[in-house]
Design a protein around this nucleic acid. Structure first.
Lengths: 237, 237
DNA sequence: ACCTGAACACCGTTCAAGT
DNA sequence: ACCTGAACACCGTTCAAGT
């Protein structure tokens, strides 16, 4: 599974470029993307870099420091909001961009807000988000509510997208059916509404993109009503 | 830290009740609550039960099966919605109940929807949620949108509540200030809106309960507008 | 300055053996 | 039927040593 060629075939000595923090972080990101957080070991990582495990500790303090660096690489991939483009399109695009980044790096979902030492991209992103909303007329308190709720939606959606055991709309119906069959036999008959889910998802499926856009529009519509100025800006009927 | 008294002081032989799946799952829940998912090892768990690690494998197939059982215990703690009480209060209370359960068992947050073999409580909960919304006049498709969005909010909020590095409103300001100070020195000056966060959270703080209720009301308000019948039920002005 | 090797205290799980 | 013991292939990290 994770079998690797022996040391002889790995680059080493003059063949291998000098290790630095940047290359360690980049390789760690690739390893986590491929094998998940469980696969991200200091030993497998060192092997990919053609080096002995302890060599990594010259470039990262420990695994926590490694994760700090990786998470800031993910933050750097997220588009920054900008009040100039209007808060709604700007915050919407940022949310889509965050979801896509979390899709590329599913192992990062629970870690994005957990950093005690946030990196530069992390700080820049949060600063831009606050700036976008404050600059669009939201009060400080409302800005906090909006970021908290919108981020909760994006993180939670990404979590569901990662953990639901199907990837495509076609699979969703099959999985739902399988789940109900594997469940305790008395269950299937007792849960009529799950039978409807099986039937409907079997026919039309569950599409993540559609669900995300629907939920995002729902939240942004609700946010629109929080802004004190919103009535004045609606086109008069 | 995880030091335990030696074998001599643990119950064993006739002193210890016969092990069964129920007690293994309950003790595993307590261990995960205390030490997190990282602390939940087969060895520490077996030690708490006064038994050798391999004894557990008579009662759970493996760690995955152990987690399946634990997650269904968490689902069993979540209040089930009921159309009789009205979809809004009913879904609201279920969301609060789910958040509280995830607060008691933070290790469970990423796992609630990830079960390939969902337990009875899990199926019952999802069936009740579908039933509550379908029975309140929502179409199947809208019901899917609503559960997807509402759950995303609750899971995402729970994730933030778990991972943000402060617990109380008082702490939030201090942590914000500390974060900005620990960050690269050029950062503090470059991010004016984060300075506002430090200032405001230092004064008023960030209260999770308030934020949750605000976000929940915002989402439920938006859901209200999705129901085709909503206009008819509003009191005429 | 950077990399190595051996060691320590951990994992989940298999297999064969005990009672 | 239920529990034990030894073993295997893994972890992250420390410490002392090499170049």
């Amino acid at each position: 599974m994770t079998a690797q060629p022996p040391a002889a075939s790995r680059p080493r000595g003059r063949e291998r470029a000098r290790l630095n923090r940047e290359t360690v972080l980049a390789e760690a990101l690739a390893l986590a993307d491929a094998d998940g957080l469980d696969g991200l070991g200091m030993r497998p990582l060192s092997q990919r870099l053609g080096v002995v495990p302890m060599a990594l500790y010259k470039h990262v303090a420990n695994k926590e420091d490694l994760l700090d660096g990786m998470i800031d690489l993910v933050w750097a991939e997220v588009e920054m909001p900008d009040a100039e483009r209007g808060w709604r399109t700007s915050m919407g695009d940022r949310s889509r961009s965050l979801r896509q980044a979390l899709k590329r790096h599913p192992w990062a979902i629970g870690l994005m807000e957990a950093r005690l030492r946030p990196g530069f991209a992390n700080l820049a992103q949060h600063n831009a988000m606050m700036g976008c909303l404050r600059g669009s007329g939201f009060s400080f308190r409302t800005t906090v509510h909006v970021t908290s709720t919108l981020d909760a939606f994006v993180y939670g959606f990404a979590l569901q997208e990662r953990s639901l055991p199907f990837d495509t709309a076609e699979q969703s119906g099959d999985v739902a059916e399988q789940k109900l069959q594997d469940a305790p036999p008395e269950a299937a008959a007792a849960f009529p509404h799950l039978l409807e889910v099986v039937r409907e998802l079997g026919a039309a499926g569950y599409d993540y993109d559609t669900e995300f856009e629907t939920g995002l529009a729902l939240v942004l519509d609700a946010v629109e009503r929080l802004r004190p100025e919103w009535r004045a800006e609606l086109p008069s009927p």
